[in-house]
Amino acid sequence: MSDTSRVAATLADGRELIYFYDDTSRAVPPPPDLRPLPPRSDLIELRRDPLRGEWVSITAQRNDRTFLPDAAECPLCPSRDGRLSEIPASDYDVVAFENRFPSFAVPPADEPDPGPVDGQELFARRPGAGRCEVLAFSSDHDGSFAGLPARRVKTIIKAWVDRTAALSALPGVQQVYCFENRGAEIGVTLHHPHGQIYAYPLLPPRTAQVLDATREHKERTGGDLFADILKAETTAGTRVVLTGEHWTAFVPAAARWPFELHLFPHRQVGAFPELTDAERDELAEVYPRLLRACDDYYGTPLPYVAGWHQAPRGAEDSYRLHLELFSVQRAKGKLKFLAGSESGMAVWINDVLPETVAERLREVLK
C-alpha cells in the first residue's frame, strides 16, 4: 500500500523534492516548479589529507550559496504571490529536497576518474559522491523546532526515517547524519527553521573514533559502551536532565562544549528506521521540551547544532542512534571561540562545569 502522506516531485533542474504531511487530508498533487533554473553543476571532489588520513570535500560552488536573505526572499518559504522559491507549493508541513549547493552529490555516470591532485600519488582524489538534502520543518518563516507541536515533530521523525532508509541504500554511502544548525552565532545562512541530512560517502573521523572506542571497550570489559555510559550517567544522576520510558537526556561528564546535551534511547537502536512507534511518540514529546529548556537556559534563543548520530554501514549492531546537541554560547552575551588549542590541536578546554549545566536545565525543563 502506498503512503498517501508522502508526495514526491521534481524541481526544475531535476532535483528530488518530497512533501511530508501531518495527515493524509493535506496531501495534494504537487505543483510544478516554474523557475528557469540553470543546469546543475555539482563540481565536488574529495581530497585526502596525507598527514591526518582524512578526506576533505572541495566544493567551490558552495561559496556562491544563498546567504542570510531577507524574509521576503527566503528560498524555504512557500511559493506565494508570484514569488517562486525552492518549494513550489503555496503551503506545506514538512519538505525534504536535494540541496542546490551540496557538499556531496552523485557524479554523472560518464564522469572520468580525476586521478590524484597534480598527478602526485600522495594527494589522492576521488569524486565527492553522496547526497545532501534540506529538511524544512515548517512553512512558518519565524517559527522554531522548539515551538512545534508533537504532531509536527512526528512528521519530521517520519521524514528522518524515510530519508535515512533511502539514503542509506545509495551505493557508497557510509553514514547518514540528520542535523540542525540554528542561530547566526553558529553560522547559519538561512534563518527559516530547517535542518539538513548528509549521506556521507566516507566514514567521518568522529564516527571512526567512536567505533574504535566501542571496540576497545568491548575487548576490555565485554560490555556495550553506549549502554554502559547510559547506565553510569543514570546511576550517578548528577547530570541527568530527563528520563522517560524510552529516552534519557543528560549532560556528558566530559562535555567539550560550555553547553552540551545528549539524548540516548534506552535500547540498542542503530538508526531512525528501527525505532518503535512508542519510541517515536515519546521522542516527539521529549525533544521539543528539551529544546524549549535550551531556550530558557539563558532566557534567549540558544544558538546550537543538534546532530543525530546513526550507525554507519556495517556497525548497525554496535553503534547506537543518539542526539548530540551543543552550543557555542558559554554565558549570556558571551561565545566560546575555538581558538589555538581546540582548532589547532583538538585539545578541548571547557569553561563550564557539566553538572552546573545539568542542574540549570532541570530547573527550566517544563
Rank of each mutant, 00 (worst) to 15 (best):
Y19C: 04
D22W: 03
R26T: 13
R26K: 14
P50Y: 01
I58D: 09
T59K: 02
R80H: 10
I87D: 07
A89Y: 08
A96Y: 01
R100G: 04
F101A: 04
S103N: 12
A105T: 11
A109I: 10
P116H: 00
D118N: 14
E121F: 06
A136N: 04
S144A: 07
P149M: 04
R151A: 15
V153P: 00
T155P: 11
I156D: 01
I156E: 06
K158S: 15
W160R: 10
V161D: 14
R163D: 05
R163L: 09
T164D: 03
A165K: 14
P171L: 07
Q174A: 12
G187H: 09
L203K: 01
P204W: 01
K218R: 14
R220E: 11
R220W: 07
L242F: 11
T248D: 09
V251H: 03
E260G: 06
L263W: 03
F264C: 05
A284L: 05
L291S: 01
A293Y: 03
D295C: 11
Y297T: 12
T300V: 15
P301W: 12
P303V: 09
Y304E: 00
V305Y: 04
V305R: 03
H309F: 14
L321A: 03
H322E: 11
R330C: 08
A331P: 01
G333H: 08
K334W: 12
K336A: 11
E342M: 09
A346L: 14
A358Q: 07
L365D: 10
